[in-house]
Structures are given as structure tokens and as C-alpha cells.
Design a protein around this nucleic acid. Structure first.
Lengths: 209, 209
DNA sequence: ATTACTAACTATCGAGTAC
DNA sequence: TGTACTCGATAGTTAGTAA
């Protein structure tokens, strides 16, 4: 885990533009200004940070690196799983249709251990929590394989077992379609909203297993 | 933050002896067995880990290093201060006497902003939480200076402002006497047990400011 | 099988300096 | 001011091999 990236995090580079000179970095990290400059260039080339006249920000890719380390530390030190909070968003549009297809359903049964209720729950992540989603990329997904018909093809899905306010379920992410990072799709063997007595806009907490 | 130390933490080296070969370490960290061996020797010489026939353990000093990083990450990522949990332990023996001495009391007023209730609360840390105490060493203490009389001398104290179940207070650690790591002494402007309605053995949570 | 030494190579670093 | 280049020094890494 990069010391420099940690310093930028400390300065708040995950949420806003930070202004800090390479001289200051050098002092903070006990190294020369020249070396600090070089390391910044390196981080920038790796894509972990971005710089402009306003200052320095940690990119998504940089945050992934940080969260991967944080996640393992948290689990080892506090015995806690990662949790993500958000509110129930409107629209269980397409998701419901897809997971009711036998091709996916079969694999849910085999690989997740349950048959999903035919309807997905959309979780809108809190702004602050949004970056935690990046952490998922660091975890090993359960792969639900897609297939092809003559007409069209159905892509692979990544699934991550989780507890949704204590209820068994899974996060499902289509591998190909990159819909934004702000909404997570959840499946569960039961109708989660009914089971939990929740409605759109209510807060729920998921714990990744 | 050392990658190797993080790997050992992941394997549980903070709580038990871990057996892992330098070859496995090399594979896990994408480096040669030889280099893994060298890095292990280095960590051992620094005193961050200890090795014997049973395996590898992370030492207190090693855990301090890890917790320093974890603490800053936690604060930046979750906006949370470090917390330590424990139960109220019997005996507010000597502590009460010392802090009622004008020499200390005066400094408490000046540096902590309150006059301590003449009695300390002993907090017995949960086994799991014990290592969090090490984190204190990474923080800047408020130094309460000691003094000498003809008869005897009173040593310096390290104080750390905190909230004790929400109530203003401070952790006080005598600089010299090294009583074990399992008990923390707390002071507060009020009688904490009365204020919180707690008795010996009850759980309390302190948040370090 | 494991660990760790030596010898060569490579990456990282600070000093000096230009912009 | 601040940033980033070159270059010589040094710290880190690997391969080969011994124990």
C-alpha cells in the first residue's frame, strides 16, 4: 500500500481536490522533493490520481487500491464484513425479467443456493458509500454464465452473496453493461420489500459475505 | 504500509501463529522466494514479526504499524474515530488519589479543559480490542507533567481526550509504570458510573478524539 | 521439501539544476 | 515560489546454489 496515496487520502483526496506541493509531500514522507515529484508522476501514469490546476484527486482506480487494503484490514482487525448502505430506488425494470429466465435461474439455485424472487431490488447508494462499490471489484465473484440463442445473447453476471438487512440475497452485476456506479441490483429468494416491510426511499444496509 | 505484513495479517498473524513458506509468500506477493525470505528476515529484525518452529506471529510493534494505517484510513473513509470497547473493572485504587493532587489537577484544567472527578474508572479491554490500545502510541498525547518533592517524585502522564459513552473524558496513562495493556484508566469531570448508570462489569465504549 | 547466502542486475533515491 | 529533468549513488530484487 502506497504511502503517498495514503497521505493524499488523509488530506481528503477521495472527496475533493487537494492542493499540496511536492516539497510538502517530501517533508511529510521523509523524502526529497524530487522523489515526491517522481512518485506523483508515477501515480498519475498508473491512473491512481489526477492532477489539474485546482489540485490533486484520487481516481476510482486509486480508491479501489485503497479499499482493497482497507477491506482486508477491517475484516482482520474488527472481524467485520464490509457493509454498504443505500436507499431503495424505484424501478425493478429489466432485472426481474432476466433473472426469471431458466438459464440464469438454474445457476442461481446451484451457485447461490436459492431461487431468486422474480424481481430485483435497486439500491441507490449514498454518495459517501458509493466508493465502497469499487471494493466489489476486488472480491471474487460468483460467475453466472450467459448463453446465446439464435436471436440474441445473454451475458455473464457477477454475483456476490450478501445479507440484505439480515435477509439472504446477492448483489448481481451484469459483466458487460456498465450502468453507473450509483445503483446496485439485489436479488433474494423472497420479496425483500415485503419481507422487510420497506418501501421506496427507505434505507437498507447490505453486508457482503 | 508493508505488503508482507498485510498478508500476514490477512492470514491471522495478529491472533495466532501462521505457517506459510517463503515460496508461498513469494507467489502471493509476486516476488521470488529469495526476496520473500529476505523481507521476512528484515521484518523480524525490525521487530515487527517473530518466528519460531510453530510459525509466524505479528508482534505488538508490528500491530502498531498496521493500526496506524488502519486508523487514518478508517477516519478518511468512514469519518469514524477509533473506538475501544471494554468492561468496567473493579478498583479505582491509586488513580483517584493521584489525580486529586493539585499538581496534576491544575494541568488537567488547563490542558484538558476540565477538573477530573476524584476517581478513575478502570476499563478492562476486550481481548479482541486489546490491540487497539497500541494505536494510542501512534497518537500525540497531551502531556501532563510530573514533579519532584524532597520525598518522592511524580511522573509524567500521557492523556488522550475521549468520549466515554458520549461523556467527556480522557484516557490517562502513566509514562513510567508499565502496567499491562489490558486495562485503561479513564478520568472525567463527572462520576462516570453514576452519570451513565453503569456498574462493574458493564460494557462501555470510548471514542478517541 | 525448506531457508537464506552470494553475485549480478534493476529500480529507487537525492543532489544539482533548468524551467 | 513550484515542478521535473539528468546523473551518480544506494537500496531492492532475482537467479543460482548451498545447507
Amino acid at each position: 500500500m502506497n504511502e503517498l496515496l495514503l497521505l493524499l487520502l488523509k488530506k481528503g483526496g477521495n472527496i475533493r481536490s487537494v492542493t499540496i506541493s511536492t516539497t510538502e509531500i517530501g517533508n511529510a514522507l521523509n523524502m526529497s522533493q524530487q522523489n515526491a515529484s517522481r512518485l506523483m508522476i508515477e501515480l498519475e501514469q498508473e491512473g491512481a490520481i489526477s492532477r489539474d490546476k485546482r489540485g490533486i484527486m484520487i481516481t476510482k482506480s486509486g480508491m479501489e487500491e485503497i479499499l482493497a487494503v482497507y477491506g482486508t484490514m477491517k475484516q482482520s482487525l474488527e472481524g467485520k464484513k464490509m457493509t454498504i448502505k443505500g436507499t431503495i430506488a424505484l424501478g425493478l425494470g429489466e432485472g426481474g425479467y432476466y433473472i426469471s429466465l431458466e438459464g440464469y435461474k438454474k445457476q442461481f439455485r446451484e451457485k447461490l443456493g436459492f431461487e431468486p424472487f422474480p424481481g430485483t431490488l435497486n439500491l441507490k447508494l449514498d454518495k459517501e458509500q458509493e466508493e465502497k462499490r469499487l471494493m466489489l471489484r476486488e472480491m471474487d465473484p460468483i460467475i453466472i454464465e450467459g448463453w446465446k440463442t439464435e436471436d440474441r445473447s445473454f451475458g455473464d453476471l457477477f454475483a456476490y452473496k450478501c445479507k440484505i438487512d439480515g435477509v439472504e440475497g446477492a448483489i448481481v452485476i451484469p459483466v458487460r453493461t456498465h450502468h453507473g456506479t450509483e445503483v446496485l441490483e439485489l436479488v433474494s429468494p423472497v420479496n425483500i420489500k415485503k419481507k422487510l416491510g420497506k418501501k421506496d426511499g427507505d434505507l437498507i444496509k447490505i453486508e457482503i459475505l
